Each structure stands twice: as structure tokens, then as C-alpha cells.
Amino acid sequence: MPAVKNQKPRGREPALIGLFLILSLIFLPLVGAQEYDYEINAYAVYFEVIDQNNIRETVEIDLTPHTNLSQYVIYTAYPVENASAVLDLGNRVERINVTVREVLGGTNAIYMTFPTLEVGQSARIGLTFTTRGMVSENGGNEQFTYYIKFSQPVGVFHMQLLVPRGYAILSPIIPSPDRVESSTDRLLLEWKRSNVRPGDEFYFIVGFSGEITVPKPPSPWLYLGVFIIGLLLGGGSVYGYILYRERKREEELTHLRSDEEKLLAMLKEGPVLQSELAEKLGVSKAKVSIILREMEEKGLITRTKEGRTYRVFLKE
């Protein structure tokens, strides 16, 4: 049989395919890891409700670049005012140049430019700005809403909402917070998610009442007014009591004078025993003693001891 010309050995092709498969298995994880320019270790968003119209938003991103990185962009559907940012490198903090531009569909792009981060150099971006539109009216109350969707993996996602004193949290609260903390000047709600995957989205809804007017402390003049009124009422009560006592005393003196006149009329007919006067005058023995003592002081009568009582004489 004639030799077959240009025929290649059959053992080399399977060997090359096997080598390719082995190299793919080794380098495929590395290719996947380099799919993104940076790795987001943690992503945190903090919202502080200032009033029904304004919210202070702070975004903190802990990342490690896989290539040299000097710019980071955040997109938001809400207004951005007074934006400022810093880059925390651990041993120093650098200021970040922030530029806000409106892009397609009314979305705002926040461009943050900073000194170049080298491969593997971890850093934290901190962005703060004032926004509005997240709080809307719903059935006479207020409702906070926030939506976020991630386009790449995130190690830990942290979301926090600060509501100042004067507001009361109402339903709905979606999703249920992982932590609720109350203090004298604020109410804090916190959510935390780990191992966020590309395409994961989160929608937050928190209802709360409109601002409650906190009563102002009473004016010092009010306390002074209450004190003066109390003083007047107390003084009036004392004065009224004094008048009552005076009137009562006058009435008693009137009765005494009337009884004195009756007693003088009796004594004009002759001396009388003191023990008999109470029955004749229709008064108590104690009152008879008072009448006689006063008449004696006035020099109208005299008394002489007679047994266990006195005999009363009209003084000439």
C-alpha cells in the first residue's frame, strides 16, 4: 500500500485539547476576578431626614482596584446639592474633586476624581450631599422611599435612616429593619445585607408622621404670673378670713351688749347669784362668766363670794 502523504500524527490533537482545558481551569477564576475594575468590599448609605423637603445623604464605599483607578461615578435620580467628598487611604485623607452633571433621563452623575489608586491599594470614598424628593405625602403622613441596584458584587451593603425627634415611625416599613434604636433626639433604622450579587436590588419604604410641634417651655413670665395670682388669692383668703373673724367678733360683742343690758335690768331689781344667771339669760355658764368679767372691768357691777358661787350686785 502506498504511503499516505501529508498525514499528521493522530496523538497530538487530543494532547493539545487537554492542555487547553487544564489552562482554562487554572486561569478562568482569575479572568472572572478581573471582570471589574475594582472590588467593592463594603457599600454604605446613610440618610438623615432634616425636614419634609431636605435629606442629607452620605455614601461610603470601601474598594480595592484591580487596575489603576482615579475616578469613581455614582448615578442618582434625585437632586444633588452641596456635594463634597474625601478619600481615606488609612494613613492620610485626600480631598476629592466632585462634579455633578445631568445625564440622559434626568439622572444626575456624580463624578469624583482623586489621586490615582494603584492595583491592590484599598481606600474608602466618602461622599456627602443634600438631596430631596425621597419623602412624599401619603394619606396625610410622610413616606420615605429609596431604591438601589448593584451592577457588581458587594461584600457588605449597609443602609441607615435617621429620623429626628418630632416624627413618629408608622407602617409600612419595608423591609423589616435589622436594628431600631431610639434616643432623646433621634430614631435610627438600620439594614444590612452580605454577599450582594450583580443585579441584586433593594427597595426601602418607611412611613412616619409629619413633624410634631414640640411644646415650648413655659415663659418665666408665666411662672411669675402664676406666683402673683397665687399670692393674690392667698392674700385675699387671709383678708377674707380676717374680715370674717372681725364680723364674728362684732356679732359676739353685739350679743354681749344685749346680754349686758338684760343683766343690768335684772340687777336693778336686786342682787342675783351668778349660778342663776345662765338659766335666766338663756346662755352657757362660760358666757355668763365672760359677760360678768367685762362688766366688772367696766365698773358696772361687783361680785362677792357666796358659797361655791358669787352674788352679783349693781355698782352704785
Score class of each variant (00 low, 15 high):
206 V>L: 01
49 V>E: 03
255 H>Y: 06
8 K>P: 15
301 I>T: 06
111 Y>C: 11
238 V>I: 15
55 I>Y: 00
306 E>Q: 14
253 L>S: 08
202 F>H: 02
197 R>W: 07
64 T>P: 03
26 I>H: 04
238 V>M: 15
217 P>C: 01
170 L>H: 08
208 F>G: 03
195 N>W: 05
269 E>H: 08
20 F>S: 07
120 G>I: 02
295 M>Q: 04
293 R>F: 10
309 T>K: 06
121 Q>H: 07
125 I>H: 05
255 H>R: 11
64 T>G: 02
197 R>V: 12
146 Y>M: 01
159 M>P: 13
242 I>Q: 13
157 F>N: 10
155 G>K: 05
8 K>W: 06
56 R>E: 05
9 P>F: 00
299 G>F: 02
50 I>E: 06
45 V>I: 02
34 Q>A: 12
46 Y>F: 04
299 G>L: 00
100 V>N: 14
179 R>S: 12
248 K>T: 08
63 L>T: 03
122 S>H: 05
238 V>L: 15
177 P>L: 01
14 P>K: 00
316 E>A: 14
291 I>M: 06
49 V>R: 00
187 L>M: 11
2 P>W: 00
306 E>D: 14
7 Q>P: 11
307 G>C: 04
170 L>K: 09
266 M>Y: 04
291 I>Y: 02
112 M>V: 02
214 V>Q: 09
73 V>D: 07
274 Q>E: 15
241 Y>A: 15
218 P>H: 00
4 V>I: 13
188 L>E: 12
195 N>P: 10
83 A>M: 04
105 G>A: 13
100 V>Y: 08
177 P>A: 01
297 E>T: 07
84 S>F: 08
303 R>C: 10
298 K>T: 02
309 T>A: 11
192 K>C: 14
52 Q>G: 00
226 V>E: 08
194 S>H: 10
109 A>C: 07
186 R>M: 11
83 A>K: 01
105 G>S: 14
102 E>L: 06
113 T>M: 07
190 E>C: 03
184 T>N: 04
121 Q>L: 03
105 G>N: 14
112 M>Y: 01
215 P>F: 01
305 K>I: 11
104 L>S: 14
264 L>S: 05
266 M>C: 05
279 E>R: 12
253 L>I: 07
8 K>Q: 09
226 V>L: 12
125 I>P: 13
269 E>F: 08
48 E>S: 06
195 N>C: 03
87 L>S: 10
255 H>I: 08
138 N>Q: 12
31 V>A: 10
246 E>R: 15
98 V>H: 07
54 N>E: 08
33 A>Y: 12
267 L>Y: 02
107 T>Y: 13
53 N>Y: 00
159 M>R: 13
97 N>A: 12
308 R>P: 13
83 A>C: 05
243 L>I: 13
118 E>S: 13
275 S>P: 11
237 S>M: 12
238 V>C: 15
278 A>M: 03
48 E>Q: 02
171 S>I: 05
240 G>M: 15
102 E>C: 06
308 R>Y: 12
241 Y>D: 14
230 G>D: 01
46 Y>A: 02
119 V>K: 11
128 T>M: 05
210 G>K: 01
143 Q>C: 11
21 L>Q: 00
15 A>S: 03
33 A>I: 09
67 T>N: 10
178 D>G: 15
73 V>C: 03
17 I>Y: 01
112 M>N: 05
202 F>P: 07
